[in-house]
Computed example of a mutant assay.
Amino acid sequence: MLAWDRGWRREARSAWLCGLALAGVLTAIDVGRGGLDWPRGCCWAVLGATLVLVLRPARITAGDGWLASRGLLRERRVRTDLLTRIRRADGMAPRLVLMDVTGGRVELDPQVLADNPLLWHHLDAGARLARERGVLVEGAGVLAALAERIDGEGARRLLSSAKNQPAGGTSQR
């Protein structure tokens, strides 16, 4: 069963809209001033395209025993059942770094896992297998903290949606 980041299209669309808006505004300003020519128009288009490339998120997908991150130029893939290290890189944007026995390495935003339960399930199931096999040497604590956070958020969402349901669990017409 294949799982993917359900919010990727929305974020990719936002990146495109930001890039187009920047290029459009800069071009409109030049047209308004009467200074738009071929080189300046190309410059604004390149600037807008660069913004799209910077803002476009990696597409995260997972299946039985693997997790992949497809960026702009290439896809990176790890075998989740052969993970050796799981690290959390904190900074401006927290990242989860996964490394496997074959040398594969994937970096992803932990929020993607929290927002996509199927992705989390594939990673968690694979990491459990890696732990049972004895190949996961670093990161069990990081994974446990992430599991607690994701499961806690899921439980809060479930309870809040149950609280908003009418009595009896069925909708009234």
Rank of each mutant, 00 (worst) to 15 (best):
R59P: 00
W38R: 14
T80D: 04
G134F: 12
A93Y: 07
R87I: 00
G48Y: 05
D64H: 01
D30I: 00
L129A: 15
R13Y: 07
E107D: 08
P117S: 10
T50G: 14
P57V: 11
P94E: 04
A93N: 11
R156K: 15
G104T: 01
D64T: 02
G104M: 03
V31G: 04
G71P: 00
L118P: 07
L51F: 09
G19V: 13
L36A: 00
V97C: 02
R87A: 08
C43E: 12
W8M: 09
G134S: 13
L72G: 03
G141V: 06
T102L: 13
A145H: 11
L53N: 07
A114G: 14
G152H: 11
V101P: 06
M92F: 08
G141F: 04
T61F: 03
L51D: 09
L22S: 11
R88P: 00
L17M: 12
L108G: 05
L136A: 11
A162M: 12
E107C: 03
A140L: 09
S69N: 00
V135Q: 15
G71D: 01
G32V: 04
R85V: 02
R128V: 07
G104A: 03
E153D: 13
R56T: 15
V54R: 15
C42F: 11
L108P: 02
G168A: 12
G19C: 13
S161V: 08
L36T: 00
P166C: 06
R87N: 05
A45D: 06
R79C: 01
A45Y: 04
A130R: 12
L123D: 08
G48C: 07
R76T: 03
W66A: 01
A140M: 09
V101E: 15
L36D: 00
D81R: 00
L47I: 08
D151G: 13
A49F: 02
E132P: 04
L98P: 03
R33M: 06
S160K: 09
G104C: 04
R10V: 14
W44M: 06
E11N: 15
A58I: 02
G41C: 05
A49Y: 01
T170D: 08
R133M: 13
W120T: 03
A144D: 15
P166G: 12
L2N: 14
L136I: 10
L20S: 10
L113I: 10
H121E: 14
A21K: 07
V112G: 05
L83D: 00
P117D: 08
L158G: 09
S69V: 01
L51M: 15
A68T: 03
L2E: 15
G154E: 13
W44Y: 12
M99W: 04
V137Y: 07
R79K: 02
V46K: 08
A89N: 01
L143H: 10
A167T: 14
Q172A: 12
P94C: 02
L2Y: 10
L143Q: 11
L67I: 06
V25N: 07
S171N: 12
E138M: 11
G134A: 14
R74H: 03
V78F: 03
T84L: 08
T84A: 05
I60M: 07
V54N: 09
R59V: 00
E148Q: 15
W66Y: 08
C18L: 11
A68R: 07
P166R: 15
P57C: 10
